[in-house]
């Protein structure tokens, strides 16, 4: 489902750019060698231009955000339909977009717009376990890594890019390469990310 949506997004992004032959495949691994999924691989270039804003949807199903990780261009309006039969109170204290959808059911009246780039962490005030991440990017070249940690960026114009990777377990976006020259040929990179430990559930206190 998510995967399908990304393909659509990728098609959408490439469609807005002049056709070029360059592409980049990044395979992400963490310090333990494990594949890093759901990381946003982002290429920035002065010549890149702005991505085309669209709309997106994050459902709440079975007290979970679906999808849990979303990659959207700036200005995207995301609707949060509550498909559970209980109410949710979706909020974000993230600086990129602070908002609150107070207790509601069904589809909220208006979608939420995300005009600023950055990571937005969504939570539910009622259900602590519900967390969703939204990467809001202001570049047309961005992709989410798949389960194998692979993210493929295609149709890249030959230019000097800054390669960034975002991940909820990174305190700040990791700049993999600040000056990455990409030509017509395909490139493959396998950077290793140093991820913060997964936040575990609070231990039962004595």
């Amino acid at each position: 489902m998510t995967r399908g949506w990304l393909v659509v997004l990728g098609v959408a992004l490439t469609a807005t750019l002049p056709a070029r032959a360059g592409n980049l495949q990044v395979t992400l691994r963490d310090q333990t060698g494990a594949a890093v999924a759901d990381a946003a691989v982002i290429l920035r270039a002065d010549t890149a231009g702005m991505p085309v804003a669209g709309s997106a949807q994050i459902d709440q199903i079975d007290k979970r955000f679906v999808p849990a990780v979303s990659l959207v261009p700036t200005g995207t309006a995301i609707s949060f339909p509550n498909k559970d039969n209980i109410r949710h109170h979706v909020y974000s204290f993230s600086p990129a977009r602070t908002f609150e959808l107070k207790l509601y059911s069904g589809v909220p009246s208006a979608p939420v717009e995300f005009p600023e780039p950055g990571l937005v962490v969504l939570g539910c005030n009622i259900h602590d376990g519900m967390i969703a991440y939204i990467y809001v990017v202001d570049t047309p070249y961005a992709a989410l890594s798949d389960r194998e940690g692979r993210a493929t960026l295609e149709g890249l114009a030959a230019a000097r890019y800054q390669l960034e990777v975002w991940h909820p377990r990174l305190r700040e976006p990791a700049i993999i390469d600040a000056a990455l020259d990409l030509g017509d040929a395909a490139r493959a990179l396998e950077p290793v990310l140093t991820l913060e430990p997964l936040p575990t559930a609070p231990p039962p206190l004595e």
Binding site: F93, V121, G123, M130
Partner: peptide, 11 residues
């Protein structure tokens, strides 16, 4: 006792 402030990740 230290308890995390989660929003929803620990901030």
């Amino acid at each position: 006792v230290l308890a995390p402030v989660q929003a929803p990740t620990t901030i």
